[in-house]
Design a protein around this nucleic acid. Structure first.
Lengths: 311, 311
DNA sequence: CACACTTACGATATTCGTAAGGATT
DNA sequence: AATCCTTACGAATATCGTAAGTGTG
């Protein structure tokens, strides 16, 4: 029993005519006749009663007729789904992203992606940096977006953006009027930090420790949004990745370039070295790596305020 | 995408080795390789990552792997079911039978049938004679067992038994001691008849009308079992088809051959002329027509009491 | 005799297995 | 060197379409 035979059977069973059926299956009448004959032989009995002027189903033919449409539909459906998967017409990508990136730069990039591939679903796991690495390593996600890891270990990292930390200050403070701010100046204020284990916090501590600068934390919280709002309220200052500028601006805080030392770290795509990407993930990967202007579009509050840090 | 290709894919996907897989699908390694290649081409992308020392599924391969087992299982299942249908290993026959026959002669015949084909289900519709004809004509059942119809009309009738009516009398009556009973003698007693529309009742009336014998009915009911029990209780006498003798005996009534005139009618199989029988129905048909000794096995009460009616 | 299905037969395609090739451990 | 997958090629097999055959209305 082959697919062709079953399709042929279905055509004959539905039209009750070999002549009409052979058009539907693009076969000559004799070929169709042989196909049905072969099917009957392989099943062990007759499916049709041919009385030279009419074609009728046998009871067993009726049984097969009740089975065949679903078999063929399932088959075609599976085939079509696979074809679409490869053609990027359907699909699903699981993506793990550090929260700061996920809520600032990612949405615009994903916007371009869904524009091009509207039927590919993207699941975003916005989790802390370490968990991004774990999820990529563990295979729960195909792709990760995170800071460049120190230990690659079975991971492949491709940077597509270099981020510089910026100072976040209250809009009505004296610091808000300066074009750039030094670490020493910033740390004279009450400092609002993310709680551990946050990659941003860790980066901060690590960099400051290297420079022998002491970090005194006045407030700690988990969400960047909270940090921003607290700064906006004048409760203190903070330092965040540069790509958080639009978010901070929206929350009412002001951002200024940080100098001497400028904390900077590469952001990039993570994937397992030993697993091939799905077509959909590959497409997303390509798109993310191809984006040149990772800086966000200008906004009222943040316009022109983020200047390149002099090395 | 063909069945062979999908089976080949499944084998490779499950063993993650072309060498092992080619045993399972009875193919040489090159042939298997080509089959997978062809499948990949038809779907539009790679299903495996071959790294000369190991075979791995691509994400799309994983998708197909989640689809393939069900497709193949459904296919094999359908194929197997059809094969069994033809081989009389499974199946279902809908059968309409007049009640008197259904509860007397049919069980033993069906016993032989299920013995030979234990997995063929038989649905018995024990309905009145007219309804048997209707159900066969209407296609609700493939086969019917009934008295020979006067109007065949699209039906095919094959007699396999000729039935003679017998007298049913109370065990302690004077009639019970006679070897045979004439109609005139029987009708002197209170008569218990089946209610219309019963084929047995109709036959009785028709035959008696032809012979100008008047039928006076003292009691009427629907079930033969009730008739038997009432006769056993001495409430009256009756006349029933010969194949009801065992049932009457069990109910406590006595049966004696009826003579001058002997009411007799052929019993047989009904089927539609324009429809082919299923293998299962054909088998049942064959069995019913092949049975020679339609008389029931001897029982204590009925043993030797039913003698052939002299013409 | 026109229509519908089947059988016969030669041509074309597909599929298969053996043999050779290439890459990795 | 051994293992495993791929490519190459000739042979067996299957499938298909044209043409002829058969039975029915």
């Amino acid at each position: 029993m082959t697919l062709k035979q079953l399709r042929a059977f279905l055509a004959v069973a539905q039209t009750l005519s070999f002549v009409q059926a052979c058009e539907r299956v693009h076969l000559s009448q004799p070929a169709l006749s042989l196909a049905i004959k072969a099917l009957e032989a392989s099943l062990g009995g007759a499916l049709f009663v041919r009385s030279s002027r009419s074609v009728q189903l046998t009871p067993e033919g009726e049984v097969l007729l009740s089975l065949a449409p679903r078999l063929i539909a399932d088959w075609d459906d599976a085939r079509e789904r696979m074809r679409r998967h490869f053609a990027l017409d359907i699909g699903r990508v699981e993506l793990a992203v550090i929260p700061s990136f996920a809520c600032n730069l990612l949405p615009r990039a994903l916007g371009r992606f869904v524009e091009r591939h509207p039927r590919i679903d993207v699941a975003i796991h916005d989790v802390i940096n370490e968990r991004v690495l774990d999820m990529v390593r563990g295979g729960q996600v195909e792709l990760g977006i995170a800071f460049e890891p120190t230990q690659l270990e079975r991971l492949d990292f491709q940077a597509f953006h270099t981020d510089r930390f910026v100072a976040v200050v209250p809009p009505d403070s004296a610091l808000a009027s300066r074009t750039r701010i030094g670490w020493e100046t910033l740390l004279r204020e009450r400092f609002i930090a993310l709680q551990r284990p946050s990659a941003v916090r860790a980066l901060l501590e690590q960099t400051l420790a290297e420079r022998r600068v002491e970090l005194r934390v006045a407030f700690e919280c988990h969400q960047l949004a909270t940090v921003g709002r607290m700064v906006a309220q004048g409760l203190g200052v903070s330092a965040v990745p540069g790509f958080c500028v639009p978010q901070m601006a929206e929350l009412g805080a002001r951002c200024r370039p940080l100098v001497s030392p400028g904390v900077q770290r590469r952001i990039g795509l993570l994937r397992r070295t030993d697993r091939q990407l799905s077509s959909a993930a590959q497409a997303l990967c390509d798109l993310l790596l191809r984006i040149e202007d990772w800086e966000s579009e200008p906004t009222e509050a943040g316009d022109g305020l983020v200047l390149p840090d002099a090395p």
